[in-house]
Design a protein around this nucleic acid. Structure first.
Lengths: 152, 152
DNA sequence: TTACTTGCAAATCTTTTGCCGGTGT
DNA sequence: ACACCGGCAAAAGATTTGCAAGTAA
């Protein structure tokens, strides 16, 4: 079982780049959607709907944020990043410099470059035939400190 | 960074077995907690708080279920199983520590024995110091078939 | 034009909290 | 006895929905 070249979603260069993609996918590029995407572009971490709502230039109704995020996900511009407890989080597709290791005890999240997980991904693909996308779910466990505390 | 021997929680034989563990951990073994544990014992899948509440013999207030689950988690008898969207789910510790590989395209889920992921876990701990519990989250990606279809 | 979107309000679902009386150890 | 726990009620938090008006394509 070889490991085929992984397809990592390509990153969007800028808002207009996303706009093109959204329209190409048959979606509309409205002002609220633009603002949501701007907030995600500016963020250095996945945002909750509530955070998006607070970061946009002009205020948006929560329902609008939720619907925009869902549509943009359907259109391939945004992806959910599940982080265990708490509200759902979203990030731009291809904003792939980031994969996450989350500690379920202290809640700290470590961000790592995707390449650092390539070997592990290759290993899983070799063993199980699965091509895992760690960017959709974090790897959840105990960080070194909490693991040590547990052992003690 | 060495990887310490992993402690996998042992499965509980029966309710009294859990009762012992809970008391040993300094917790109290009340009737509501017993009922919650009975529901989890009887279930063949992780349950939401709401499901627990509907399955217990005598009705329990939702707040009680939530508090019981949280305490029991703290006491090491119960563990959260995150499945993406939807309400949180819980399972007995050691109850079929199944681990999952989920395909996001065809939705098939492959269940694997925890040992089959031990090497990968060790690798992650060596690289990042994280002790990952795959049983809390599935590994999400593309199964072999869907990956092949994508490559084509 | 026409179907898809938004904003608003209200509903729903999930989980948490305050308080006080009850209970396990 | 005493600290912890359960039930009730209410609140908080997160997300969804109905509907009429607005707008991108």
């Amino acid at each position: 079982m070889t490991h085929a070249p992984r397809t990592r979603p390509l990153a969007f260069r800028d808002i207009d780049d996303v706009a093109r993609a959204v329209r190409a996918a048959g979606g509309r590029f409205s002002m609220p959607r633009r603002r949501v995407l701007e907030a995600l572009f500016a963020a250095d971490e996945p945002l909750t709907a509530e955070q998006v709502g607070r970061r946009v230039s002009e205020p948006l109704d929560p329902a609008t944020v939720y619907r925009a995020l869902e549509s943009l996900e359907q259109l391939g511009a945004v992806r959910p990043v599940h982080a265990g407890h708490g509200p759902g989080r979203y990030a731009l597709v291809g904003d792939g410099e980031r994969e996450y290791l989350a500690c379920e005890r202290c809640r700290r999240v470590t961000t790592v470059a995707p390449e650092r997980l390539d070997e592990i991904r290759a290993r899983i693909e070799a063993d199980f035939g699965y091509r895992v996308a760690f960017s959709h779910f974090p790897l959840v466990g105990l960080c070194a400190d909490c693991a040590a505390a547990t052992d003690a």
